[in-house]
Amino acid sequence: MTVIASKGAGPFIAPAAILSLLVALVPVIFIFYNSTAGGTSTEAFTSILESNLFLRAMRTTVEVSLLASLLSVVLGYVVALHLARQSARRRAALMVLVLLPFWTSILVKSYAFTIILGREGIINSFLSWALGAEVVLPLIFNRVGVMVGMTNYLTPLVVFPVLASLLAIDPALYRAAEIMGAKPARIFLTVTLPLSAPGVLAGALSAAVMSLGFFIVPALMGGKQDIMLANLVDFYTREVLDWNVASAVGVILFALVAIFAVPAMLLRGKQQGAR
């Protein structure tokens, strides 16, 4: 980074600074303020900690996020490994297959999955036709639907950091391992996997951060049992109209995300420092 000057940054950064103070910091303060009813009461928190609805949503959120992150790391790794082995030109072309889903609206995906996974959806129709009997697998509006939708959304996010760390591996290491007689499986376990670990960790953490706050997928592809914390925030804001409780759920979700976001940011800082 080339630093021209240490003075005079003010006018350049001022608009962004003012906007982020007013529209990023103040809203967060509003949530914390509301969750304690102005710093005077912990009632909102005690009431949700006793509510079964909240406890179930909390459990669902943690379970679904961890499992979806794990699945997307596995799928993302498969794709990243395939991309890493292509020539630069082919990789750029194949990248479209990851970037188009990455840029596709989550609403389009959720809607498409209702067509694919629904009671009379593509998969059930195909199975009915192939087996010659009526098949109605419950694939959507339940946990399966949520997992499919979330994994589909998260996988591209994992591909990018994993691919970056796979491409950073010195090809001479592969040649050396091969010359020394290591078999492909051994090369994968002793060279590829350990050296791509930072990318996997970065991908897993960002998948976890994203998935904890998921709102659209559980709302459109889940059942009543699959309500996550983000949906609960919406429920308390719009249905119950209890802003204090909604804010308390928001604060807890915020804290939960911080558990994964802080190491993710430290990791990114470290990688940039090493470069």
């Binding site: 982020s20 910091l25 967060v28 979700l253």
Partner: peptide
């Protein structure tokens, strides 16, 4: 960190905060 925070804060939390504000 503040400018980048919308990337990390769940959009529902950001949305609720902006809504209250």
């Amino acid at each position: 960190a503040l400018i980048m925070s919308p990337l990390v804060i769940p959009s529902v939390v950001f949305a609720l905060g902006v809504y209250l504000y």
